[in-house]
Each structure stands twice: as C-alpha cells, then as structure tokens.
Design a protein around this nucleic acid. Structure first.
Lengths: 202, 202, 202, 202
DNA sequence: CATGAATGAGGCTTCATTCAT
DNA sequence: CATGAATGAAGCCTCATTCAT
C-alpha cells in the first residue's frame, strides 16, 4: 500500500484538504452574507462546492462551528490590518484613514459582489468581535492621549466610530463599483470634523 | 344574546382580543430582538404567552406577517416622532437633539430590559425602514440648506448619522439604567463636531 | 319570560332550526361533492352558510356524522323512488327505465351545476349504500324470475348495472345541460341489449 | 473509493435504493387504495415500511407527487396491456375478453389482498386516466367500425363499459380467491349481449 | 477521507372540537 | 341556541447530523 510516491501523495492530500476547507469556508461566507445564519442550510453550503454533504463534517463539527470559524476568521484577518495601521500611524487622522481604508478594502474583498455585506451582528456577539471592539477602543484612547477628557465615554466614542464605519461600509458595498478609498476619505472627515463639515465638501 | 350585559360582554371580548394581540406582539418583539427572525419559532413566541399554539394564527396569518407587522409598527411609531421634531426644530442642533432623544427613548420603551435591542437589519430591508432612511435624509438636507455642497454624498451622510445612532443606542441599552438623554447629548456632539471634540468633554 | 306569543315563537324557532339544518346539509353536500370528504373542513361548510362555526355542533356531532347523514339521506331519498318504480313496473325494461330516470333526475337535482357529482365511494361503504345495492339486487332477481339461471352471479349482475348507471351518470352531469331522460334511454338499451346494439342506434 | 468491490458496492446501494422506492410505492398504493388520497398521511405510508419519516422525501418530493407517480405508473402499466390486446384482437369479443382479462389480472396483482381496490376516482381526474379513457374509446370505435351509428354517443358507450369493468372488478377483488378470468368472461357477456342474456347462464 | 442515503427532531400551519359569554 | 376565540393534536416538510460503504 505504500509506494515510492508517498511524499507526493501525502502532499497532494494535504493540498486537497486545504482546498476543500477553503472551498467550504468561501461558500459558507457567501451564503451567510447573503441569507443570514439561520436561513442557510448545510446543504446550501456544500451544494455550492463539488463535495458531498457528509464531507462537510470532516472539516467542521457543526453548522454553528463554521459560523464561529468564519467570524473569528474575519476578525483575525482584520485585527492584524488594524494593528499595522496603528503601528504606522502618528496621529488620529492618519490612523483613521489607514484603518478605514483597510476595513473598506477588506469588505470589498470579502463581500464584493454579494448582495448584502457582512451580517449585522450585535457588536460583541463573538469573542473575536469583542476583541476588535476593544482593539479599536485602545487605539483610540492611545492616540487621543491627553486630548481625551478624564471622564470621556470611550465606549460611546468607539461605538460611534464603528457605527459610522459599518453603515457607510454597507452603503459603499451597494454601489457599483464600490469605492473603498472614497468611502474612507468621507468617513474620516465625518468622524474628525462632524457632519456639517462633511456636508460642506463635495 | 339578549342579556342586559351585552355591551359589557362584547367589550370584555374585544378587550381580551386586544390583550392577546398585544401579548403576542410583545413576546414576538422580545424574541426577534434577542434572537433574530429566523432563530425564533412561532412556538417560542406563544410559549412566552399563556396561549396555545394554534391561537397565534387567530391573530397573524404567519410568522412572516407578524415580523412585518412589528417592523411596520416600529417604523410607524418612530416616524411621527421624527416628523414632529423636524417641524419643531429651527436648526441642525435642535433637530438632532430632539430626534436622537426621541429615538433613544423609543428604544428604551421598546427594548428596555431586553439583552439586545432592535435587530440590526440591513438598512433598507423593509419599506418602512427605507422610509425612515429617506425621512432622515430629507430632514438632513432640508435643514442643512445651502450649507450642503452640491456634490455632497447625502446617502453617506445619512448612513453615518444612523450608524452613530444605532451603535450608541445599542451601547446605551446595555447599561443599567439606560440614560437616553445622556446618550443623545453625546451623539449630538459627536455628529456635530466630530470625535476629537466629543472626546474632550466628560 | 313566557309571553302570549309562545306558540308563534316556538314555531319560529322550530322553523329556524329546520332552516339552519337544511342550510348546513346543503352546504356540506356541495362541498363534499366538489372536494371530497377529507378536503372539506367544517369551516368550509359553515362559511357557506351565515352561521358561526360553533353552531355546526348544535346540529351535527361531528364532521363524520354529517357525512354519514348525507349519505344516508341520499340513500333514503333514493330508495323510495326505486321502490316505487319496482312496484309500478311490470317487466325489466319498464323497471330499468323508471329506476334510471329516477336516479339520473336525482343526480341532476342533487349535484347539478356541481363540477363533480356524487363522491365515488366504494359500493358498500355505508349501510345505506349497502341497502341500496341489496334493494337493486332483489328487484333484479324478482323481475327476472325464472329467466335467471340457478347459478347466475347476481352480485356481478348488480354490480354491472350499477357501474353503468354510475359512470353514465357521471358523464351526464358533465354536460350542459344534462339530459337525464336521454341518458336513461341510453343506459336501458345498453343494459338490456349490450354494447353492439346500443352502438347501432344514434 | 478504490476497493475491488466498488462495483458490488455501488450495485448494492442502487439495489437498496430501488428496494426502498418500491417499498414506499407499495405502501402508498395500499394506503391510497384503502383510505383514499386525503385520508392517508405521509406517516401512514412510511410507518408501513421500515424507514424513517424523512426518508420519504429522499424519494418523493411530496405526498402529491407520489400520488401522481402512482396514478401515472398504474396507467402506464395498463396502457401497453390494452394496446397489445387491441393489436391482437380481430373482433370486439376477442378485444373485450383480452382487455378485461388484462385489467382484472392487473387489479389482482396491484390490489390483491387489499380490502378495497383502486380508488374510485372521477373518470378523468388525472391526465393518465383521461388517456386510458380515450384509449378505450378509440379502440371501441375502431373495432366497431361501421357498426357504429353516425350519431352514437361514444362517451356514454365508453363510460358504460368502464363502469361495468370497474364495479365488477371491485366485486371480484372482494372474493377469496379472486377469479379474474371468470369475472372477465362474465363482463364480456354482459357487455356484448346485455343483462338478460348474462343472467340466463350460470 | 469522500460519499450520499437514512434518521428523527422540530418548524410552520390547519383544523375539528370545546366553551365562556 | 348562537357566537367565535381558544385549544392542541396532527399534518407536511426541512434540515443538521450520522454512518455504512
């Protein structure tokens, strides 16, 4: 049963496994984005791949697990980007611009062409999402430094910033073609200077 | 059919009907807010009342119908409030303050005690929601008047304002006790002057 | 509570009761004929009257009972007719003609305008139907007298005759306007002389 | 995926599938014959097999579909038999004998042991049944040739013949053991020469 | 590991029947 | 007796998950 091509075979196997896993994840991401968790059936997901229904369970223990994996995956892909921007940025404007560009590009890559966008989940539904929220809060407080009043409500500040990013991101995805850089410029202005200022510029 | 208490009888019946209808609506509102449309089963809803499963269908034709009724109901309760604020308000600040206070009080009344808040639905999932979006956009453009640049992206502006309201509202609901007026003051400042200014004040 | 018009009142009540009972029976007959027993709901029946759903149960103990009542009713209306024809008839041809005319007129009165006709029930599903079957068998053997061979299969003979009547009756109901007398003439010829003979005449 | 028993494996699977499908069909046929379409629940059907409720839907999309499949199946098994008899037969008697024997044997195979027989559906409830009706009508007119009067009512003739076959078939199924050949001989005589002649012979 | 049929819990909904008024 | 809302069993069907091959 073991031949001289074992290594190659094992390699091919590993490749196939990785390919299958990615295929399932991609199909699930699309499906969840378009229809929401409950409306998606495991069969919807595997029907979008060339695999059989049972195979799903060789890669994920349950439908819930793939959803969590997906959310964690998104958050984990997003966090390094945000961290990198935080590291590079010298001031609030630079950081906001970098982070929002990163986020909007991420949205386009992840959900571009989708009718929907990322599921609008409660802000802290998963640990990964909570982590992102905290990450942003810390970056924000760090950069603001002593321009942050002692009693300032950083949770509200963070929520406001995230709200702007989320909703403008959703609008952006609905346009053809989506323009992440333009959206980021707009969001930066809105966050930094407020709505009247943002309205004054084309 | 001919007792002297006919009126009272009919009245009691009508009262019971109205009470049951409200009980079902309230249970559904809670359930949808906490778990989302798909995750809620009709049995979840009626189990939260003291009625029997079949009774649900004496009041709503389907699970979908009650969801629509709920969304329409919320939007229809919200729109007059927003309109009234628009009529009263002379400038942007007054309008924002009134509208946000109205919205946050509405949230507390509607979802106070709930773990969650209103479902984060896509911004224009239902006609009623679209209508609210447009209502806000129009108020915004109307009040800004010629302080709105010709090419300004009013959809982004509206989305940003709604995003702030939604996410700060969600944060507010999570606090005990929720403070809608405080949240409104904060949101007004954030929207009007931007994040750095909002951060500078306790 | 008792007035001088008690008799009149009682009379009106009895009238109303009879009217209601007939209304329910008529609605049920139509419904069963058009949709079949199981497909008809009690609400279908009472919706076709101006009564309330609970009222149904003041007149019939259950849906099954009204179906039985209906079948019994039909059989009981049919049997006297058949008996009368038997009494009048001097020979087979006269009896067949009378009985078939009676049956086909009965069908038109009972189911005319209906899309369907009487439910095609098993020949002996109810006692009343069994009784009709036996009634016909006895008339047949009585009239045939010694023209009936000793070992003749009277069940088959009866079944054949009934089969002809049922299926030609069904065809007749489908025509506009239905012609019960013509159908009876045709069926008599077919039963008496067989198909080739019946085919030879227009 | 690569064992030497692949063919056998696939074969066994296919066999199981076919067996299950047949088991479901058989159970449904019995149930529909005994209780009629509406009175039969999908659970009745699968309870008569050793399968689980959900399995039904691996084979048929709905209860309606299996009913249609059953009717179509019966008609499709019957029509070739009737056609073959039509091709062989030189005269009316031969054709009637062949067709009725074929039909009665079909009944015994299909519904033998059943308390009931085929559901007495309206003569043309399904396309397949309409097709059988027309098939018989055409054979009849073809064989009668110019022994058919110009204005003869071929629909009535066909209905009469089918009525005889249906009701005598029902009687036959009720006997133990059923005698399809005897029933066919009887029915031929009745159809060809009429009731008095049929009565004269044992 | 892949396959895909089998499983059975559970979802939505209908409906015969009861009962307070 | 009439009314019509309440009841809960039962129907059809979907789906996450298991398992033999």
């Amino acid at each position: 049963m073991s031949s001289s091509s074992d290594v190659t075979e094992a390699g091919r196997r590993a490749q196939t496994k990785a390919r299958n896993r990615e295929a399932i994840l991609a199909a699930a991401r699309r499906a969840f984005a378009e229809q929401g968790y409950e409306a998606v059936s495991v069969r919807d997901i595997i029907r979008a791949t060339d695999l059989a229904s049972g195979t799903f369970y060789n890669y994920f223990r349950s439908k819930e697990e793939i959803a969590r994996a997906l959310a964690a995956d998104a958050a984990q892909r997003l966090r390094p980007l945000l961290r990198a921007e935080r590291a590079k940025a010298m001031d609030l404007e630079a950081w906001l611009g970098g982070a929002l560009r990163a986020y909007f590009h991420f949205l386009v890559e992840e959900y571009g062409g989708t009718a929907a966008g990322p599921p609008h989940v409660r802000m802290d539904a998963t640990p990964a999402q909570r982590a992102v929220f905290e990450e942003i809060r810390e970056s924000l407080t760090g950069i603001l430094g002593d321009r942050l009043a002692p009693g300032a409500d950083t949770a509200y500040l963070t929520a406001g910033a995230i709200g702007i990013a989320r909703y403008i991101g959703e609008q952006m995805l609905r346009r053809a073609p989506p323009d992440p850089d333009g959206a980021a410029r707009f969001a930066v202005r809105l966050i930094l200077h407020g709505l009247p200022t943002a309205a004054r510029e084309g």
